[in-house]
Design a protein around this nucleic acid. Structure first.
Lengths: 347, 347
DNA sequence: TTGAAAGCGCTAACAC
DNA sequence: GTGTTAGCGCTTTCAA
């Protein structure tokens, strides 16, 4: 079988354009030191020949890697799906390819994936997803990332404060405040928080915001129940059941993300608890389906896709003197799952 | 700043193990021509040193590329998210990295992405998503893929019949039959299909199955309205509105995928059409959220994640003499969005 | 079975 | 501004 699209090398282009290998290289990588006309000419010849550079040779020779590594906890989690979507959008636009790997939500997984990306000599790494409160875990990730940066790699993190790298940061504390205030404003006085693992900064921060709003309203701490389960739909399902049992007085459940909120809705529906009449439910993130679940979910919008885009744009830009931090806002989205608490029984 | 995890090269390993570069290379790539003990020894030394091969050098020198390219239409479309999830699951397990790129649902986009993957000399390409009925478009994709295969690359496609490569094939025709039969069995006699672009094989096949079931039941073609819109939630929203207007007699809408069905539900909810009392709605795929929308969606399950896993396993296996085809089944999932048609008006 | 040496295609010093 | 050349780290002939 004949390869119908023969693979031209840079020498072929140089030869055809009547210039040296070096000049051709310079022309194609847009580095200066070539006269404008010559550069233009080489580029047109290359285009016409259908020349595509060999990324491996380029990277081996010390050129900047053109691929970007994206590490997510789990691609099928909508939070990460939307971040990935933003990253890929910019990548397509700027002719970059991206390697996506899953860490499985563990520090060890992250370490493994960062190493793999280093093996592949990617030019940049975007690390998405909450950092951990465990200092040791974070230290080892930080070390690996520093080594990568020391070797010239660009790094951007999404949703992590404690790393010396460019960062895109959703304001989780304020978001927590916002959603709690909404519920408080509706008249709820006894609420429960369905939180993910206590070792994640995202969880801690959102919880802190909720607590702050709660305290500001002068309510005693005991009226805010907190339950930690998995950061998944299933975690929402089981967590809600536990809350129903342990805290029957609760009139509102705040799930720490939409996926858990959806699990919560499922449990409530199954138990015949009507939302929002008997129980209000709220989440965080505003994932795409939040508007379509039954009832539609009240939540705080975190602009995941934009965050992915920002992170990608950051790593495509030269490293600044000091790490940049891009804060993103949040927005309360009131839908059908929250309402005033049920009336007290009048005897 | 000091790189705390120095990057060892193969020479370093060879030296430390007291063997030649060539021997070390052979030992690590498990190719034969090395005595068992020596190979074992080299490997243990490499492990202990934390040696990781430079993927670029390896690939440049002619070694097989260890990364797999996955091309999807759009990563945030749940159909592809789940396929990607399956692919990544196996990748993590087998220590492969995967580059994900989006084609944006056009043949041109696919071409561009295949070329980019070829530039990066990936070892295999998984092309996911429906093929087009336009022979010209498919021809150019086929040509690009053949060239890649000719150069030793492995290829697997998901949901495409007409390409000479290993394929994972959902039975869309049968799935269409299944869902239509379900509705017919419920007593519906006038239905509408909310189809995606007519140029996609998936659409054509599912539609064919629906038509077949419809014809088998002896109903006249005119009682099955077909409307083509975008393959998105938005397409479902607008398509449903058009159907309501143009075909008020319809008692059931089959959307050609779940995402469109969800858009349809949204329009119906907004118009005050209750589901399934006034209108039944069904979809295809059984994406994760199908169970959580309101009302929960009746659909035909297509095992997307498994399909991704199969495809990945295929490209990790040696090319067979003839292209392999793995057919996957489907399963009717009856939920709350379908029911008997409303009673005729009794005057 | 093992080793020496020739590239793979490109970039970046270094000369001119 | 342009060309020459020495590698980048690995696999793979080819000899021994």
């Amino acid at each position: 079988m004949i390869d119908e699209t023969p693979t031209f090398r840079l020498v072929d282009v140089a030869q055809r354009a009547g210039v040296s290998l070096a000049t051709a290289s310079r022309a194609l990588s847009e580095s200066d030191g070539v006269s404008k006309e010559r550069a233009e000419h080489v580029r047109s010849v290359a285009l016409e020949m259908g020349y595509v550079a060999n990324a491996h040779a380029r990277s081996l020779a010390g050129g900047a890697g053109s691929t970007v590594g994206l590490i997510v906890h789990e691609i099928s989690d909508p939070y990460f799906t939307e971040i990935a979507s933003g990253v890929l959008r910019i990548a397509t636009q700027r002719a970059r390819t991206v390697q996506i790997s899953q860490s499985g939500r563990t520090a060890e997984g992250e370490l493994i994936q960062i190493r793999a990306l280093r093996t592949h000599r990617v030019g940049a790494i975007i690390l998405a997803g909450s950092g951990r409160t465990d200092a040791l875990d974070e230290k080892s990730v930080a070390r690996e990332l520093s080594a990568f940066q020391a070797a010239g790699g660009r790094v951007a993190v999404i949703g992590r404060h404690h790393l010396s790298a460019d960062a895109v940061l959703p304001d989780n504390v304020a978001a927590g405040r916002t959603i709690a205030s909404h519920l408080l404003g509706l008249g709820h006085r006894r609420m429960a928080v369905l939180a993910g693992p206590a070792g994640l900064h995202t969880v801690v921060d959102r919880l802190a915001g909720i607590r702050a709003a709660f305290n500001d309203s002068g309510l005693p701490e005991e009226q805010l129940a907190v339950m930690h389960t998995e950061f998944t739909r299933e975690g929402g399902v089981t967590g809600a059941a536990q809350i129903l049992k342990a805290h029957p007085e609760v009139t509102a459940i705040i799930a720490i993300n939409d996926v858990m909120a959806i699990g919560t809705l499922s449990t409530l529906r199954q138990r015949g608890v009507s939302v929002p009449e008997d129980m209000s439910v709220a989440g965080f993130d505003d994932i795409t389906v939040a508007a379509d679940v039954g009832p539609s979910l009240t939540t705080v919008r975190i602009p995941m896709a934009r965050m992915g885009e920002f992170a990608m744009e950051m790593v495509l830009t030269k490293q600044a003197a000091r790490p940049r931090r891009k804060k993103t806002g949040h927005e309360l989205v009131v839908r059908g799952s929250t309402g005033p608490p049920p009336h007290e029984h009048t005897e």
